[in-house]
Design a protein around this nucleic acid. Structure first.
Lengths: 229, 229
DNA sequence: CGAGCGATTGAAAAGACTCAACCACCGTGG
DNA sequence: CCACGGTGGTTGAGTCTTTTCAATCGCTCG
């Protein structure tokens, strides 16, 4: 169970940081971040930022999961990404100096640190490795989103579900996928009812196992075959 | 009509450059680019790069139009973006040092210059304005693609067509939209037949005017209303 | 002038959505 | 401790959008 305090999380011992964009920080930089950042405990379903608000800095997930989503015209959410421990969120719109076009909300209780815009931009100016890491990350995400678009445009809901589950498999690693049916539907881009019917099919085909909310993948290969990858 | 030669195009007089990412270049930098780049004339439907190949540099569109697309499982193209004069293409995958996940092909005859990876990366290292411009551009495109995903996932084909035409309106400016039905369908993400039927509807509703391939928008407001923006 | 490709139309089928009802689990308050 | 209410999950039926397939048209290029 998570520490529920607003206790300070030390960057140097942060599990996620090593493999994150901030893995390249020298001791001095890390100490500076450590001294200037704000740590916060978030409950489930708490908002990090809203669509339309202006970025003031970046969020660094120490522990927990965050969904990044947009609201369509009828208020239906479209989940664009799910971020987990070690990932940074909120910096994309910061660079373009425009309001957020997506919103971010915790999916479970989380510990998340906040680094101010100025601190972060200063680090980027002085640290070419960090800078290049950011550029690389932005580029990689652009490619991912191109794939996402093509999938949405050309695949059936069944294929998209398989594709989405493969993505979720990487996010949840060994853990079973733990999302509400609605969130899952909003990631796949379909109606909740359709999603439930397809989950049932997958279950009957022995591809997944379901325990209330939690979904375990039994047959990854079939999933790949259906997703067409 | 376009110059059909492989004549050198001078950066300092390039119409597109002023408003492009390379607008920030000092004279010295510009001269260096000018001396080291390669200029090429492309026919209609010629490929700049293919999905799966490795980026060797960036393409700078002096004149003409280029579609950026992915091929889905059944070979159907999904157009992700249409680039025009002044835009640079091909640098996104270059940063991530991975093969292209999209392909690029001219939509019409074009003059396009090529700057090698090394030259470009060197410029980025030494020119913070260029660097920040690139980061800003990448971020902006990420936001655009988030919108694109949400549209694909939640809107009807009719709404998506309206949305796509608004985008095309900005690209073609005063000119009528000039795309094959198939390309248009591949941008909207639908079957060609469906697209044609919807164009007919739009025509009957007085929203557009069609002359063979060329589509002129008569009523932009209606388009916005349908797109839900 | 003919071949061929892009554009168009029609009809039928499939996929997905909506709406409505129902179920099951969970925490609350009596 | 149990009944209650509420939320999230599930199912069924009907409808609508969109796709698919097949056929036809018409323009352009050699």
């Amino acid at each position: 169970m998570l520490e529920k305090s607003h206790k300070h999380i030390t960057c140097s011992t942060c599990v996620g940081r090593k493999n994150s964009l901030l893995g390249s920080l020298c001791n001095e930089e890390m100490e500076h971040v450590n001294a200037h950042k704000a740590c916060n405990y978030y409950k489930k379903h708490q908002s990090l930022f809203l669509e339309g608000s202006f970025p003031r800095g970046v969020f660094c997930i120490n522990e927990g999961m965050v969904k990044i989503f947009q609201r369509g015209d009828e208020g239906k959410e479209q989940i664009i990404h799910i971020a987990k421990s070690g990932e940074m969120v909120g910096f994309r719109s910061m660079f373009s100096e425009t309001p957020y076009r997506v919103a971010a909300e915790t999916l479970e209780e989380s510990n998340i640190c906040f680094i101010s815009k100025d601190d972060f931009l200063n680090m980027m100016d002085s640290n070419p490795v960090l800078r290049n890491g950011i550029i690389k990350e932005l580029s990689k995400e652009l490619s991912d989103r191109a794939d996402f678009i093509t999938n949405m445009a050309q695949k059936s809901v069944r294929e998209r579900l398989a594709f989405t589950m493969i993505i979720l498999l990487e996010i949840y690693e060994k853990e079973p996928i733990n999302l509400s049916r609605e969130d899952l539907a909003n990631f796949v881009g379909t109606a909740t009812e359709t999603l439930i019917r397809l989950l049932k099919d997958f279950k009957e085909e022995g591809i997944i196992e379901v325990h209330t909310r939690k979904i375990s993948v039994l047959n990854k290969e079939k999933l790949f075959a259906i997703a067409g990858k």
